[in-house]
């Protein structure tokens, strides 16, 4: 299977688009746009999983895709948006260090991923090799996002990117067992982190984990 064949091309372009969104996550400063990019990456991951399920004839990948779409593409972004609107109206822009340096570091990481993956996977199919390189790049970019961001939401974005990269790598390999379990476990991890973030945000704001404290603030948005 190589270039010019539809299954390969579509999988390849979906992976590449996810990589592109990882770069957007790396440099985007406005938090609303950051969450939108996360949603986009989740949807792309879902599409990639469904496409792989169709190509490999593996129905369990449809489940993975559905989970990704429902949780990462819709539920988590909607939740984050709602939380942002109600809790942090003044944190719409997050300071990031030198964008140029971040981006340069990102490109170097991609080059590193390519140079690592290709010699290590000689003998595998071209599709798997290149997709693995892209998946590893997304994982590394997620880590880079986590270390360059200061706010908790930035960390969540980095972690979700990382996890998306892992799932992308897993769905690309034909016959990989436990893909659903893997993606679910990753999802649970992300949700725990978001819950932790939410709890920390509450404590920062109100010095308490007691949600009753929230009631007097309910009208804040209006």
């Amino acid at each position: 299977m190589g270039f010019g064949q539809l299954p390969y091309d579509v999988a390849h372009v979906l992976g590449g688009a996810m990589l592109l969104v990882s770069f957007v996550l790396l440099y985007q400063r406005r938090i609303a746009a950051l969450v939108n990019a996360l949603a986009l990456q989740g949807c792309l991951l879902a599409a990639a999983a469904v496409w792989q399920g169709y190509v490999q004839g593996a129905p369990q990948l449809y489940v993975t895709g559905l989970i990704a779409l429902a949780a990462k593409g819709i539920a988590i972004p909607v939740f984050l948006h709602r939380m942002m609107r109600s809790r942090m109206p003044d944190r719409a822009v997050e300071p990031v260090g030198s964008i140029g340096l971040c981006m340069l570091g990102g490109v170097l990481l991609v080059a590193l991923a390519i140079l690592v993956v290709l010699p290590a996977t000689t003998g595998a199919r071209a599709l798997a090799r290149e997709d693995l390189a892209i998946a590893l790049s997304i994982v590394l970019l997620g880590l880079l996002t986590m270390i360059t961001r200061r706010s908790a939401l930035g960390q969540v974005a980095g972690l979700m990117t990382l996890e998306n990269g892992l799932v992308l790598g897993a769905v690309g390999v034909a016959g990989m067992p436990l893909v659903i379990e893997l993606s679910t476990a990753g999802l649970v991890l992300v949700i725990i982190v978001i819950a932790g973030f939410f709890a920390r945000l509450l404590r920062e704001r109100f010095d308490s984990l007691d949600t009753d404290m929230l009631h007097p603030h309910r009208g804040e948005g209006q």
């Binding site: 270039f3 010019g4 390969y8 091309d9 390849h12 372009v13 992976g15 590449g16 688009a17 990589l19």
Partner: peptide, 10 residues
């Protein structure tokens, strides 16, 4: 014959 390519997208 070259197909869709990520590199072309970028």
């Amino acid at each position: 014959a070259l197909g869709l390519r990520v590199s072309l997208l970028f």
